[in-house]
Nucleic acid binder design. Structure first.
Length: 902
DNA sequence: TATGCGGGA
């Protein structure tokens, strides 16, 4: 057997660090304290009976329903302290809940319960729960950093925290900070237009952003429990806000939000006056939204804060990977030595990407093999390699971090750091740039890394062998998680493994093979995440990237990594996106391997060579460099950015991509000839929709069209996160589906078909809807969501005065759209999609009206395989095996001409 | 003529 190399995950990540950590200066900055206006303090909490901890052992009050609100008004605009009326109980009698603060968060969280004054029983139970939490909280790696983190933010406005998985940063950092003096709500004078001055409330809440809804809600619940703050009722200190769902009790001090939700709030509150601090969690995932948030926060920190009455906004950036230097440079106080020029100084240094051939290469043997890796040096350099015992306090002090890199021999990592722009300038003046940094070790069991000896020609086949070998040789417990690129690979490996499973001897455990990808129904996904119930059975999860970042797949001790994933890539020249399998980044490979060490020691099998690994890019390309930036540009413009090319972004898109976006926005009437945002553009941005769909709604509301309700119906269907039409898996399925949906599929294309589906569905009594869906093999959950979105969009349209106050209820008589109205609706879509059209060429293929690229109707369209019309409009297109048009409708060539003229 | 990596408002 080949030699194995034992690598601890923290070590790999930590090993990339090769420089000293600037120590936060010890000078006390008084400015932020001086500004502090005396706190409005209400020491007499109004007590009102309410429920105990939701989910707790005893729920004493059954009268209160969960305080979870629905609908956009409350979700996005509810100011804290607003009186929310529910269950017919007016809660206005309760006074503003300002909590006692003390220098010790623990003590205060125990005695300051608001609303529990009269209920000794509740108070005692909560007290016990909080005490129990204290024991586990103190064991978290981040706990000993508590005072350092508080200190850092008293002296600096920006703090970067590098906290690995399991460090406890997401739950603990807000709790460390909410009792800080700078976190108090203040009434400050703000000068307004016309020379008037108004008293405005600033601060009092800490926002913490999450990339995913599930993270925002579950973290809020967890933190509420740790603080003894109720998760139902009208008073509490911890809340959350995600689309369609928010819980914001009066007295909220810590608020978990999705990134998109914070951006939405910035439309109405560009200075984030509600907040004393914004904590950006998981910034390393680098979504477009988080990049925009980082830019806005940088402006708020370094720009004028007159809009906040001079009250500084504290910013905490948290990341699980160590590429903090660029972020530090980004947030550093502008000085002559380190002037930040958007899109120039921070160009990322990318290693050339491996081509498909280089990664696959050719190969004879498919046997897993291990080699000595470059990461043998451990974080501390010695000891502490036992994962079982290392789950205690593993806090990395800043000074120790300076030692570790010397032991790390990886040249490629070092050169990556060395070439990092701006790094040396800032390291020369530690602690002087207004940015503090803390490093916290994570909790991660040891994971042994194995590589292929030689490149594999067919990794699905090699993975099959590897999985079978693992199953035969490794004892239970120990589930296997396989990373593949897409549904097709998952299905083919699934069937190959199933064939083999039947041949396996009775003495071996059974194999429970579970696919896991986004298009699967939620229940099937959930099953893959859960522990396997059957005895003497090994779970083998075949997953896409979905398993890399979201919820932990429990039970996994073995990871098999194909080394690739499908990535979206925008091509500014063609104005379209492709979706192709590409080699993953090193960070991503490390993340995948880490999935084996969440519960115990684990092993990772990389189905590529170590040389391949070393040639991978360090980081993934951030999404903003891979996407059509039309959305991002509109978001900037609508939030007050006049010159988008000078907006500070950690990574600036290609200038051509920005120009394309501006051009498109101009065609849609979202920006005027000078590039300033128009009223149409502002309205577009208020919709929780792609900009194009927002444009369609505005066009639909015009009197000459008068087709807004229908457009809302269609767009509601288009923006559900799961497909309404379950896709056939076999040819037999295909036949039955066509038969079952005969009454719905329209020759007028996918738009009209969706309109018919949601119209029919909504007209049914609730009791009949499920059966109706089943008979037609439609996804009931998706349709339910469509109606929810429809409701939200109708409400926004009413607010925007696009829709009259009265609008039909859900249940109504369904009537198919008249042929005249069909034309109107399709032409309405053309106002935003004129460029996404194709004309039938003489050879019988479609070519795009703009650019003349060939394009084919995607098999998921109702128009697939039907007689071709003279032209088509499509709402989506993607380049995979070839250029495909999705969500297709037949149009006339002269309609396109007309639309392009305007 | 033959098919959708993953998030989010």
């Amino acid at each position: 057997m080949p030699e194995k190399v034992h690598v601890k995950f923290g070590d790999i990540v930590a090993g990339q660090e090769d420089t000293t950590i600037p120590d936060a200066g010890r000078k006390l900055k008084l400015s932020s304290l001086k500004n502090g206006v005396k706190r409005t303090r209400d020491g007499s909490p109004k007590s009102k009976p309410h429920a105990g901890l939701k989910g707790g052992p005893e729920q004493t009050d059954s009268s209160g329903t969960p305080e979870t609100t629905t609908g956009p008004t409350q979700a996005s605009h509810t100011p804290v302290g607003r009186i929310i009326k529910r269950n017919g109980v007016n809660k206005s009698s309760a006074k503003a809940a300002f909590t006692e603060t003390s220098s010790d968060g623990m003590r205060s969280s125990q005695h300051k319960r608001i609303g529990f004054g009269a209920e000794n029983i509740d108070r005692q139970k909560l007290h016990r729960i909080v005490q129990q939490h204290q024991i586990t909280r103190k064991l978290l790696p981040i706990w000993p950093k508590k005072e350092d983190i508080r200190h850092a933010l008293r002296e600096n406005d920006v703090l970067l925290i590098n906290g690995e998985t399991g460090s406890g940063k997401s739950t603990q950092v807000p709790q460390f900070l909410y009792t800080e003096p700078w976190c108090r709500r203040q009434m400050v004078p703000i000068h307004q237009d016309g020379g008037k001055t108004a008293e405005v409330s600033v601060g009092g809440i800490i926002a913490i952003t999450q990339p995913r809804r599930v993270a925002a809600t579950t973290l809020a619940r967890r933190v509420a429990s740790e603080m003894g703050s109720p998760f139902s009722g009208d008073i509490g200190e911890v809340g959350y806000a995600v689309r369609f769902d928010s819980f914001l009790p009066r007295g909220t001090k810590i608020k978990f939000v999705t990134e998109g939700m914070l951006l939405q709030e910035m439309l109405h509150d560009p200075y984030l006056r509600k907040y004393s601090a914004v904590i950006v969690d998981e910034i390393h995932e680098r979504s477009v939204d988080v990049d925009l948030i980082a830019g806005f926060l940088r402006n708020l920190v370094h720009g004028d804060n007159k809009g906040r009455g001079g009250v500084p906004l504290k910013v905490v950036i948290m990341s699980a990977t160590l590429d903090l230097r660029r972020i530090e440079a980004f947030f550093a106080k502008p000085t002559p030595a380190s002037r930040y020029t958007p899109g120039k100084d921070l160009r990322r240094n990318l290693a050339p990407r491996l081509s498909e051939d280089e990664v696959d290469g050719d190969l004879e043997s498919g046997h897993p093999k291990s080699t000595i890796g470059p990461f043998a040096a451990s974080w501390e350099g010695s000891g502490d390699s036992d994962g079982e015992t290392s789950s205690g306090n593993e806090v990395k002090s800043a000074s120790a971090a300076a030692i570790a890199p010397a032991k790390n021999a990886n040249r490629s990592d070092q050169s990556y750091i060395k070439d990092m722009p701006n790094s040396s300038a800032h390291l020369a003046e530690p602690g002087n740039n207004g940015v503090a940094i803390e490093y916290v070790r994570g909790r991660q069991y040891e994971v042994e890394i194995n590589y292929e000896a030689n490149p594999t020609p067919d990794y699905v086949h090699t993975i099959l062998q590897t999985v079978l070998q693992l199953h035969v040789t490794e004892p239970l417990p120990g589930d296997i998680l396989v990373f593949l690129t897409g549904q097709d690979e998952i299905e083919s490996l699934h069937s190959a493994l199933s064939d083999q499973a039947e041949k396996i001897g009775k003495t071996l455990p059974r194999m429970k093979i579970m696919p896991l990808y986004g298009a699967l129904p939620a229940a099937a996904q959930q099953e893959a995440f859960e522990k396997v119930k059957e005895k003497f059975t090994r779970k083998i999860v075949l997953a896409t990237n979905i398993a890399e970042t979201s919820v932990t797949v429990s039970g996994v001790r073995f990871v098999v990594d194909c080394g690739k994933s499908k990535v979206k890539q925008y091509r500014p020249r063609l104005g379209m996106e492709s979706l192709l399998a590409k080699p993953i980044s090193r960070v991503s490979a490390i993340q995948r391997a880490g999935r084996a060490g969440r519960e115990a020691k684990g092993k990772c099998f990389r189905i590529y060579t170590e040389e391949d690994f070393l040639r991978l890019d360090q980081d993934d390309l951030p999404e903003i460099l891979r996407s059509d930036v039309l959305e991002a540009v509109l978001k900037m413009k609508s939030r007050g950015v006049e010159d988008v090319t000078n907006f500070p972004l950690m990574d600036s898109p290609d200038i051509m991509a920005i120009q394309n976006a501006l051009k498109q926005l101009h065609i849609m009437g979202a920006v005027d000839d000078e590039g300033n945002i128009t009223n149409v553009g502002r309205k577009m941005a208020t919709f929780p929709l792609p900009a194009t769909y927002g444009r369609v709604l505005i066009a639909a509301a015009e009197p000459r069209s008068d087709i807004l309700l229908e457009a809302i119906d269609v767009i509601s269907c288009l923006t559900t996160d799961s497909e309404i039409f379950n896709q056939p898996k076999s040819e037999d399925d295909q036949e039955t589906i066509i038969e079952a949906r005969k009454d719905l599929m329209s020759t007028d294309g996918d738009i009209i078909t969706l309109l018919a589906v949601v119209g029919r569905y909504a007209s049914l009594p609730h009791a009949d809807r499920l059966d109706w869906c089943r008979q037609r093999l439609l996804a009931p959950r998706a349709l339910k969501m469509a109606l929810q979105i429809r409701q939200q969009l109708r409400q926004i349209c009413r607010q925007q005065q696009l829709l009259l106050e009265i609008s039909p209820a859900d249940s109504e008589h369904y009537e198919p759209l008249s042929p005249e109205k069909v034309v109107v609706l399709l032409k309405t879509f053309l106002t935003a999609f004129a460029a996404k059209t194709a004309i039938l060429a003489p050879d019988g293929n479609y070519v795009m009206a703009v650019g003349r690229n060939p394009i084919a109707v995607h098999p998921s369209s109702v128009l697939f395989g039907r007689k071709k019309s003279e032209a088509i409009m499509f709402l989506e297109h993607v380049f995979t095996t070839k250029n495909y048009a999705k969500k297709v409708s037949p149009v006339q060539a002269d309609w396109i001409e007309e639309a392009l003229m305007i």
